[in-house]
Design a binder for these strands. Structure first.
Lengths: 244, 244
DNA sequence: TATTTTCATTTGTCCGACATTTAATGTTTG
DNA sequence: CAAACATTAAATGTCGGACAAATGAAAATA
C-alpha cells in the first residue's frame, strides 16, 4: 500500500486508490484504524492537505469514517445495507436521467427483476409483509390521495414484495430498479380509472402471495407490466400531441 | 444551493451535499461548469481548502470532473454506464465480504436475477452474444485452465447471457450480482467432474437461447442453480471438516 | 476513592505561497 | 498577411504552517 509512483496524475487520487485497494483487498479489516493524517503524509511524502483530500474521497464512498480527538483518526467502515441502498438508488436515478433511458426499457427491467422475486416471496413472505402490502393497497384506494403519495405507496408496496423474498442481496439489487423508477413513474398521471386497475392488480398479487401461489403472482405481475407499459405509451402519445 | 447553515459539523460535507443536491435535482446540467474554487469559497464563506475537500468528495462519486488551466474548473459529469458498473460491482463485493453474506443467499439472488433475464435474452440475443457464449464454453473445456480463469470465463458467459436481453438497465443491475459473486465462487474448487457438468449446463443454456426456447433456458438455469448450491454445500462441509 | 484539571493527540479549518496546466492574447518574423 | 513564438491570465494542484476544537488519558486534587 505504501507504493506511490512519481506519476503526474493527481496525487490525492493516487493515494485514495492505494488505500481503497488495501481496504477492498481485505488487507485492512473493518474498524481498523488508518495511520494519522500526519503519518500518511510522511509515508507518501506529500503534504497533509493532499492526504486529507484523499481521505475525503474515501469518506464520500463510505469506506472510512473519521473521529476527532486523542483516540480519533480514520477507521475502515463497515458498509451497511442501508447506506448501500441509498447510494444505489441515487446512482440508478442519475443513470436513468442523465442517459435519457426510455420508459419502456426501465419498466421492462423493473418488472423482470420483480418477477424474479415473486416465487421466493410466495414461499417466504411473513404476515408482516402481507400486512404492509394490504396497508399500502388501502392507502392507494383513498380518493383524495395525491399523485406523489400514490407513487410513494406504489414503491412501498413493491418494496414489501421484494423484501418478502427474505434475501438481503436481492433486496439490495432491486432497490435501485424499483425506487429509481419513481421519477419516471411520476411522468404518468394516474387517472382514477388507472388507479383502480392498479389497486386491483396489487390486490391480486397480495392474494397470490398470501396463498403462496407463485404462478398466480407471476401472472398478476405480468399483467401489471403490460398495463404499466400501455400507460407509459399513452403518456408519451399525449406529450407528443401536446408538442405538435 | 447557496444555503449553508451555521452548523459546526463538517463544513466540507455540508458543501458537498449542497452541490450534490443541486446536481441530482437537475438544477445543474451535464457539462455545466461550477464556479471556481475561489468563488465557491467566497459564496460559502469558507476557505479554499474546505471547498477543495468538498469537490474531492464529489469527484469520488463521479459527479464532477476537473480540468486545470485557463478554461478549466469543475464540470458536472455525465455518469456513464461503465463507471456505474464498476462502482456497483465493487460496492456489491464489499457488501458481501463485510457483512459475511453466506454463499446460499448470494447464489440464490444471482440465479433468481439471471432467470429474470432468460426470457428476454431468448427473444433478443444476437449472433454476437451466442458467439461469445460458445467461445467461453470452449475456453471452459480446456483441460489446463486454472481455477481463476475458469471463474473469469464463467462470469463472461453469464454476462453475455444478461447482455443478450439488450436492456442496459437490466445489465447494470445484474453486474453487481454476477460479478460480485466471483470471490465467493472462488471458494469452490472446481474439480474436473464439476467443470464437466457446468460446461454441459452452459451448453444447454446456449442451445436454448439459440433456439429461442425460454422454457428450456429456464430449466437449465434452474438445474445450474441447484448444482451450484450443492457444490457450495460440499465446499462448506469440507471446510468444516478441515477445521475439526 | 472520586472528581477535576491538565495535557497530548488528532481531525477540522484557514491562510498564503508557489507550481503547473491551459487557452487566449500579443508579438515577432519570414 | 500568416505562421511561429512569447506573454499573460485564470484555474487547479501542492505545500507548509498555524490555530481551533474535540476527546480520551493521565495527573493532580478534594
Amino acid at each position: 500500500m505504501k507504493i506511490d509512483p512519481a506519476n503526474k496524475a493527481d496525487l490525492s487520487a493516487q493515494i485514495a486508490k492505494a488505500i481503497r485497494d488495501a481496504i477492498i483487498s481485505g488487507e485492512m479489516n473493518v474498524d481498523e484504524r488508518l495511520p494519522s493524517e500526519a503519518e500518511l503524509a510522511d509515508q507518501f511524502n506529500v503534504s497533509r492537505s493532499t492526504v486529507r483530500e484523499a481521505l475525503k474521497r474515501l469518506a464520500a464512498q463510505n469506506l472510512i469514517r473519521t473521529r476527532r480527538g486523542a483516540t480519533g483518526g480514520a477507521f475502515v467502515r463497515r458498509l451497511s445495507y442501508e447506506e448501500a441502498y441509498a447510494n444505489h438508488v441515487t446512482t440508478s436515478t442519475l443513470l436513468l436521467s442523465m442517459n435519457a433511458v426510455d420508459f419502456e426499457t426501465a419498466c421492462e427491467a423493473r418488472f423482470a427483476l420483480e418477477r424474479a422475486c415473486a416465487p421466493l416471496s410466495a414461499a417466504r413472505r411473513t404476515p408482516d409483509h402481507l400486512a404492509t402490502m394490504r396497508a399500502e393497497i388501502h392507502r392507494q384506494s383513498q380518493p383524495g390521495l395525491s399523485d406523489e403519495s400514490f407513487c410513494d405507496s406504489d414503491v412501498a408496496f413493491h418494496r414489501a414484495l421484494v423484501d418478502g423474498a427474505a434475501n438481503p442481496v436481492l433486496s439490495y439489487q432491486l432497490a435501485g430498479a424499483v425506487e429509481a423508477m419513481q421519477p419516471l413513474m411520476n411522468m404518468i398521471t394516474f387517472t382514477a380509472r388507472s388507479r383502480e386497475k392498479i389497486v386491483g392488480l396489487h390486490t391480486r398479487i397480495a392474494d397470490a402471495l398470501e396463498a403462496q401461489d407463485a404462478a398466480a403472482a407471476d401472472a398478476a405481475l405480468s399483467e401489471l407490466t403490460i398495463y404499466t407499459l400501455s400507460l407509459g405509451e399513452k403518456a408519451m402519445a399525449a406529450r407528443a400531441a401536446k408538442k405538435i
